[in-house]
């Protein structure tokens, strides 16, 4: 049994610790939003967050996630916004109608969310650098760029709202 925290829940998985995290998530925990694309960490379809960092779960052993927080697309919105079931990245993807087939998009969104967590106002170059490990064969890249910028704005305004709210609380 290997214990990890998956989307906020502590889980014990009956799996070989050497098993790639991808298969543990898909086959053992049966969360299929995280996708297989290449098996070599080349395409990003399997991207999840490990303690907040974007990693390729197809080349990361389950053992690397022991006692760590794993977040998949199913858990991306957890605790971000109680009013909608979506993270601002997902909302921006919705507004820009980013997906075509949609298969690579969970990985794209996980990479984008990790980028925005470390860079609140990415430039086109920042986006290209952070996102070049995620392939989309349908060709949704122009919309991914747009959506990331939109999500960045939403996150910034959420943050300033939160700061204002805290200040108001302190004042009252």
């Amino acid at each position: 049994m290997v214990q990890i925290t998956l989307n906020g829940k502590i889980m014990s998985l009956d799996a070989d610790p050497a098993m790639p995290l991808l298969y543990a998530i898909r086959d053992i925990a049966q969360l299929t939003g995280t996708k297989f694309g290449c098996g070599l960490g080349l395409c990003g379809a399997c991207t999840v967050h490990l303690d907040g960092q974007a990693i390729r779960s197809c080349v990361t052993p389950l053992s690397a996630a022991i006692d760590k927080r794993v977040t998949t697309i199913e858990g991306l919105a957890n605790g971000i916004n109680v009013e909608t079931p979506m993270h601002p990245v997902q909302e921006a993807w919705l507004d820009n109608k980013v997906p075509q087939c949609g298969y690579c998009q969970p990985g794209q969104m996980m990479s984008a969310a990790a980028l925005l967590a470390s860079n609140s106002a990415p430039t086109d170059d920042d986006i290209d650098t952070a996102m070049q490990g995620n392939i989309c064969r349908c060709g949704t890249y122009p919309r991914i760029r747009k959506a990331i910028k939109q999500a960045a704005k939403t996150l910034q305004s959420n943050q300033s709202n939160a700061v204002n709210a805290r200040e108001q609380e302190v004042q009252s």
């Binding site: 898909r26 086959d27 049966q30 969360l31 299929t32 939003g33 995280t34 996708k35 297989f36 998949t72 697309i73 199913e74 919105a77 079931p85 979506m86 997902q90 993807w93 919705l94 109608k97 997906p99 949609g102 298969y103 998009q105 969970p106 969104m109």
Partner: peptide, 29 residues
């Protein structure tokens, strides 16, 4: 007109089911 796309929310939340995602009791890979 550009209507709301069918099935888009499911794709965005990881709920869309592709052939790779089928799960059955006792399934062998």
């Amino acid at each position: 007109t550009d209507v709301k796309l069918q099935g888009l929310e499911k794709i965005l939340t990881g709920q869309a089911i592709y052939a790779q995602d089928i799960q059955l009791p006792g399934l062998l890979i």
